[in-house]
Design a protein around this nucleic acid. Sequence first.
RNA 1: CGAGGUGUAGCGCAGUUUGGUAGCGCGUUUGGUUCGGGACCAAAAGGUCGCAGGUUCAAAUCCUGUCACCUCGACCA
Length: 482
Amino acid sequence: MAKEIEKKQGFVEHITPRDVDFAQWYTDVILKSELVDYAPVRGCMVIRPYGYAIWERIQHELDTRFKATGHENVYMPMLIPESLLLKEAEHVEGFAPEVAWVTQGGNEVLQERLAIRPTSETIFCAMYSKWVGSWRDLPMKYNQWCNVMRWEKSTRPFLRTSEFLWQEGHTIHATQEEAQEETMRMLDIYREVAQTELAMPVLVGRKSEKEKFAGARATYSMEAMMQDGKALQAGTSHNFGTNFAEAYNIQYLNKEGKLTYVHETSWGVSTRLIGAIIMTHGDERGLKLPPHIAPIQAVIVPVAAHKAGVLEKCGEIFAELAAAGLRVKLDDRDTLSPGFKFNDWELKGVPVRIEIGPRDLENGQCVVFRRDTYDKQSVALQELSAMLPQLLEDIQHNMYALADQFRKERITEVRTMEELKKAVDGGFAKAMWCGERACEDKIKEEAGASSRNMPFDQQPIGDTCVCCGKKAEKLIYFAKAY
RNA sequence: CGAGGUGUAGCGCAGUUUGGUAGCGCGUUUGGUUCGGGACCAAAAGGUCGCAGGUUCAAAUCCUGUCACCUCGACCA
């Protein structure tokens, strides 16, 4: 089907329409926009310069906020001795099926095999137990930017790959209250970055026991809705209580001189966020990047670049905009037609395009195109650098508003299983739940949906469980998930 | 790990049923003309047909094995 359309239109770079095959649309977009390529290793991706530039933007937004809230960056080794990994039982059980092992070094078989980190709780714990001694040492709030590896059964670039990049924050605190405060603070930073920088609305809340992180006392998440109505867990923040501290013996002497276990948190977001941006905003022409994290915010495309003065003027405008602090690019590739470039930069999701040709030079203006609405307007050249920042903000806000409206239309309050099944076919179901694992399992079985999270703002929409009909305990979202 | 699918030029594919000189489109290179929504003409380069066995005078094609990747499920950021 998609192939027939492609052939008919004769477009080499044609993208499969979203409503024909959303999964294929996603694959088309990420490959053709040159974000990633498949690696010659099972389940791994190569993040290409344009994709990595987006990751660097996301890193910048997060890292700035981490540091502003008192966190420091560190780096832990990628290899974890098996004995160390085994100490927290629930954690091991959760990760064991997807750990990759190093069993040989050079020509020698290792005495103890080494896990390639699937996450670094264990090694952080080992170091914290060494580093902490007094209540004066607390809190310790460390973060690391690194790669991790999980031997996933089936993989998709950005969404689930064997190796991926992320940040993992690990903190230890004197009290449960402090740990909980930290857990919430970091979740809120994730929410804020998602909403203000990625223009992506998210639902924040607490995970059910079934869905929580292996070894956590409580897991909180932010959940985003993709354009096929499926949920993507876009970030998590965990409160471990003293679970790991007890397993790894992380104790300090409190003010009374008594040995006390620390309270620990961890929190992470990954390159999956790039997948979230793509599936939240993208359209039939390809990527659509929010201006705040777009590596290129505005691209200048010369028209009839060989004509006198065109390229020179483009160069001047480029210098002016760059000096004004905009991330701008001049597309001076000489063998490509303007039309090709228009499509190329739309595919790559650049928020604003500036066209400058001979006609514009005569009139002292340019054509400004915005990616989110496809609107074109003529702008006087001397006003350009003054109007662009506001235009970029408009685009940023419009993209959030569109995504928010899309999501609102696809969240349905449900009171019966029939309603739930219908709601999760292309959307989220908002339901009351008794709190029992059995009902989650049954909903997974019958509707293919999992619980996403329980919002902090618990305004009941009924008093009986959507599944079993018994007394409801919690308001919770269900959805099919990536 | 279950079910399905695909491996042929950088990319996308045809050719496999019925064994007989390796094809097409795009891209690439060179020269020229173009340039306000995916330009055109001409010439050129580019492939041990995933890998290993086997059958045959002859294998991309038939047989056996094997590896990899993709999609959908189950599991997970």
